[in-house]
């Protein structure tokens, strides 16, 4: 369970406040107008941006000041999710040990994860030799071996075509179902939310609102969301 307690983040004129709880294993979409602070919310939860006030808890542990790598979180960014100079195997292996010194059982974990995302045999390739969809699969294989209880997706599939994106989201849903991890996913597209997130956080007018059921929100959108959806 992730809990933001009166968190406020200020950056020049920009502010984002939030007081909300994300239950363990929940699949949550983060939607709202662009510039409202969806990515900022994720950066704050992941530890890339400091909260100006308030606290962040995981279960009952205060992680407000923890560094990104020490949080119970795996994250995929909009771009640069893979190191282009490392092989597929190495990129996934980094999720287990950041210095890549893997023992045989960890080695096997990486191979299994790649098999699970449909990339068996791709271990020695470099990312440049893969398609966009395959690169996303490598990143997901790493999320798999990281075994973190919460996965943050900051629009990692935005550059993919609609069909491929849907395929990736379905794969994410499957993987989450297997591991039981929760998810926060930034999205511009309400369809994405409907597809895999049963709950939604609306970020608008400087506030990250508490979770509501996605279906209800999209059927009766508040004014701010209505303006955005058009």
């Amino acid at each position: 369970m992730l809990r933001l307690e009166n968190v406020l983040m200020r950056q020049g004129d920009f502010t984002l406040g939030g007081d909300l709880t994300v239950p363990a294993g929940a699949r949550v979409a983060v939607i709202g107008p662009s510039g409202a602070g969806k990515s900022t919310l994720l950066s704050l939860i992941a530890g890339f941006l400091p909260a100006s006030q308030g606290r962040v808890f995981w279960e009952d542990k205060d992680i407000t000041m923890a560094s990104p790598g020490k949080r119970p979180i795996a994250m995929l960014f909009q771009d640069n999710n893979l190191f282009p100079h490392l092989t597929v195997f190495q990129n996934v292996g980094l999720g287990i040990r950041p210095n890549l010194k893997l023992d045989p059982s960890q080695h096997a974990l990486v191979v299994d994860a790649l098999k699970r995302v449909g990339l068996a045999g791709f271990e020695d390739r470099k990312p440049a030799a893969l398609s966009g969809g395959q690169q996303s699969r490598v990143a997901l294989a790493r999320v798999l071996v990281q075994r973190r209880p919460l996965v943050l997706l900051d629009e990692p599939f935005a550059a993919l075509g609609p069909a491929l994106k849907a395929e990736m989201l379905d794969l994410v849903a499957e993987l989450l179902a297997e591991t039981g991890a929760g998810m926060l996913m930034v999205s511009h597209d309400p369809e994405d939310a409907r597809r895999i997130a049963d709950q939604t956080i609306l970020v608008a007018e400087g506030v990250a609102h508490p979770l509501v059921a996605t279906a209800d929100l999209l059927e009766n959108p508040p004014q701010a969301l209505k303006d955005y959806l058009g």
Binding site: A46, G47, F48, S67, P68, G69, K70, I73, A74, M75, F77, N80, N81, F83, L94, G95, P98, N99, R142, Q146
Partner: peptide, 10 residues
């Protein structure tokens, strides 16, 4: 790669 490195604790 700062954020990716950070999130993987490299």
């Amino acid at each position: 790669y700062g954020r990716l490195s950070g999130s993987l604790d490299i």
